Amino acid sequence: MSVTQEYLAKGKDIVSVVAEQEKVIQEVAQLFAKSILAGRMVHLFGSGHSRMMVEEMWPRYGSFPGFNPIVELSLSFHNLVVGANGQRQAMFLENVPGLASRILRNFDTSEQDTALVVSSSGCNVVPIEMAEEFQRRNVKVVALVSKLHLEGSTSKKSDGKKLIDFADYVLDTGAPLGDAMIYLDGLDSPVAPGSTLGGVLLINCLKAETAKILHESGKSPKVLSSGKIVGDQRAVDLFESAYDEHAHLLAKLYANVGPK
């Protein structure tokens, strides 16, 4: 078997893991849709490469307003790798206690909101404290993790708690311990991670289920679409109206920030 065939075979296993979670996916979609129908938002957070799952949900083609992507560049800007704004600093910062509460200090959340926190290991401090802070605010939390990686890892939080300890729902990417899935003869470190594959599958299943609920509830989502599908003018109108809706929803998160 070639390494391509091996990766694709392991990818099929990940698809099976995601498929087995359909009931939970649908329950989470109900939760997300309830927030959006109430005129509130679903907060999205992920540090490091988990940022990709945040951006996969919104904004991009095939996605729609109702989601608040919380992307801290200090925790997720990898392009320079070394030097100023490098990866060493980002990996250090994602384990600094107290940073999560400073991030969320910017938002006036509501109990009608929900949150999706993504972390493959579920063991880094900032994602854990983000979930903890959301729950402290009575916001329901969905954790997206790699179960096997989480179970085989040690929390970096001082009390030993992991992301799933502050989650109302847990979704599993199906990736293995260590994430990478392909072992080569004579090389002790595996290559080609799987958590992104499982994560993207989960995100888009959630997106589709949430859109279905919104549409059937009389609030058809304003989906960012290609002019090749809906026509150029319709695509422009959708982009503008979707961005406007996002701005209006986001404004509510800033309206009453700070002590009353």
Rank of each mutant, 00 (worst) to 15 (best):
M130W: 01
A167M: 07
R234S: 12
P59I: 08
S119D: 03
I70G: 01
K23G: 08
L177D: 12
E56M: 02
V170M: 02
K207Q: 13
G186I: 03
M181R: 10
V17H: 05
V15N: 08
A90D: 00
S217W: 05
N124M: 04
G46E: 00
D172W: 04
Q233V: 12
L238K: 02
E27P: 04
A242Y: 00
V125H: 13
F77K: 11
D185V: 15
S119L: 06
A251R: 06
S158L: 11
V200G: 01
L75F: 01
L37A: 05
S153Y: 04
L104A: 04
P193R: 08
K140Y: 07
A131E: 07
L31K: 09
A247N: 11
E129A: 10
F239S: 14
G218R: 00
T154D: 12
G48S: 11
K161R: 15
G48E: 11
Q21V: 07
L224M: 14
S153M: 11
D13Q: 14
V141E: 03
M91F: 13
A242P: 04
E209I: 11
E151I: 06
S50H: 08
R51G: 01
A192D: 04
I128Q: 09
V200M: 08
L184R: 11
Y243W: 10
H43D: 13
P59M: 09
S153C: 07
A90C: 01
A211K: 06
T210P: 05
D108E: 10
L99P: 02
H49Y: 03
P176H: 03
A84Y: 10
G178D: 00
G186E: 05
N95I: 02
L206N: 07
E151F: 05
L197Y: 13
L116Q: 03
T154N: 14
L116F: 09
V3F: 12
G160D: 04
V54L: 09
H215Y: 14
M91Q: 13
Q21D: 06
F64Y: 14
V126D: 05
A115K: 04
H149G: 05
N79C: 14
K219F: 14
A33H: 09
L202N: 01
H43S: 15
I203V: 15
K10H: 10
Y7L: 15
